[in-house]
C-alpha cells in the first residue's frame, strides 16, 4: 500500500548495474549538477547583490559582503516601485478578466452554434493570430490620442489593457473552442431538457467543466503584462505609470537613476511570486502553451 514498498519492489526489479552503466551514470550526474550550477549561479547573484550593503550604484561580486536591506529601502522610498507593482497588477488583472469575458462568449458560440459567417470568421481568426503583435506599433500612440479625445478619461494604461485583451481574443477563442468541442453536446441537450436557456447552459454546465482551460487562459493573460517590455515602452511615458518591466529598466539604463543593486532587489521581489506561481502551476501552464502551440 505505501509508497516505500512500491519503490522497494521496483528497485529490486532492475537488472544489476554494469560497470559501463555506472560510468555513464556518473557522467550523467556530473552533467546534471554542472547545469544546476549554471542555472543557480546567476540567479544566486541577484539574491546576493540585492542584500549586499557593500555596493554603491554598481554591482560587485566577490569582495566584502555585508548584509543590508538598504537597497530594498531605496527601492520603496526613492523609486516608484510600489506604483509599478500596482500598475502591473491592475493591468494584469483587468487583462485577465476582460480576456475571459470576451473569450467565454466567443469560444462557446463558435463551438456550439452553426451560424452564417462562422467558417469565414474562423479562418479570419486563424489568420489574425498569426500576425505578430508588433505590427501595429506605429499606430498605437496616435490612436490613443484620438480615443482619449473622444473619451476624456481613457488613460494609456486602459489602452494597454485593451491591446493585451484584444490581441489575445483570436488565439484564446481558438483554444477554448477546441476545448469545448471536446465536451459532448449531449450535455447541452440534457441541460436544455432540464430547463436551461442559452446562457444558462454555458454558465451552469459548460463553464464549470471548462474551468481548467479558463484558468489557464486567465493565467497566461495575467502573466503576459508582467513579462512584456515592448508595449508599455511604446505607450507609457510617465515613470509613475510604468509597469514593472519598463520601471525596473530605468534603474539600469538611465544615468540619473542608475542603481544596479536596487534593480536586483526589485527583480527579486518581482520574480519570487511569479516563480512560486510557475512552480505550483507548471503542469497547467505547459499544457496551456501546448494547446496554444500555433501561437509560438
Amino acid at each position: 500500500m505505501s509508497k516505500n514498498k512500491e519503490k522497494g519492489l521496483y528497485l529490486s526489479d532492475r537488472p544489476p548495474l554494469t560497470p559501463v552503466k555506472a560510468v555513464l551514470l556518473t557522467i550523467s550526474y556530473i552533467l546534471l549538477f554542472f547545469y544546476v550550477f549554471i542555472i543557480v549561479w546567476p540567479l544566486a547573484q541577484i539574491v546576493f547583490s540585492s542584500f549586499n550593503g557593500n555596493q554603491g550604484e554598481y554591482i560587485h561580486v566577490g569582495g566584502a559582503y555585508q548584509f543590508s536591506l538598504k537597497h530594498f529601502k531605496y527601492l520603496f522610498q526613492e523609486t516608484y516601485f510600489l506604483n509599478w507593482v500596482i500598475n502591473t497588477i491592475v493591468i494584469a488583472v483587468a487583462t485577465a478578466l476582460l480576456t475571459l469575458l470576451f473569450v467565454s462568449f466567443t469560444g462557446y458560440a463558435y463551438s456550439r452554434y452553426r451560424f452564417k459567417g462562422r467558417k469565414a470568421s474562423l479562418m479570419a481568426i486563424m489568420l489574425i493570430q498569426t500576425i505578430p503583435a508588433f505590427v501595429g506599433i506605429a499606430a498605437y500612440y496616435t490612436m490613443h490620442s484620438i480615443i482619449s479625445a473622444v473619451i476624456p478619461g481613457f488613460t494609456r494604461q486602459m489602452f494597454l489593457i485593451l491591446i493585451y485583451a484584444g490581441g489575445g481574443i483570436a488565439g484564446n477563442t481558438f483554444i477554448l473552442k477546441g476545448y469545448i468541442d471536446s465536451i459532448s453536446s449531449e450535455l447541452d441537450d440534457a441541460a436544455r431538457i432540464d430547463g436551461c436557456g442559452n446562457l444558462q447552459v454555458y454558465r451552469l454546465i459548460i463553464m464549470p467543466i471548462v474551468r481548467p482551460m479558463l484558468a489557464i487562459i486567465a493565467l497566461w493573460s495575467f502573466i503576459g503584462p508582467f513579462l512584456d517590455y515592448l508595449m508599455p515602452s511604446i505607450l507609457l511615458s510617465d515613470p509613475k505609470q510604468y509597469t514593472l518591466a519598463t520601471g525596473l529598466y530605468t534603474l539600469i539604463t538611465d544615468v540619473r537613476n542608475m542603481h544596479q543593486p536596487v534593480f536586483a532587489a526589485g527583480g527579486l521581489l518581482t520574480a519570487i511570486p511569479i516563480i512560486i506561481l510557475f512552480i505550483a502551476l507548471q503542469k497547467q501552464l505547459v499544457s496551456g502553451l501546448a494547446s496554444g502551440a500555433v501561437k509560438g
Binding site: S184, E186, L187, D189, A190, A191, I193, I205, I209
Partner: peptide, 14 residues
C-alpha cells in the same frame, strides 16, 4: 413533460 436518457448518459461531471 418528458425525461430523457442519453447514450453517453450526459451526466454533469462537476
Amino acid at each position: 413533460d418528458i425525461a430523457m436518457v442519453f447514450q453517453s448518459y450526459a451526466l454533469y461531471p462537476h
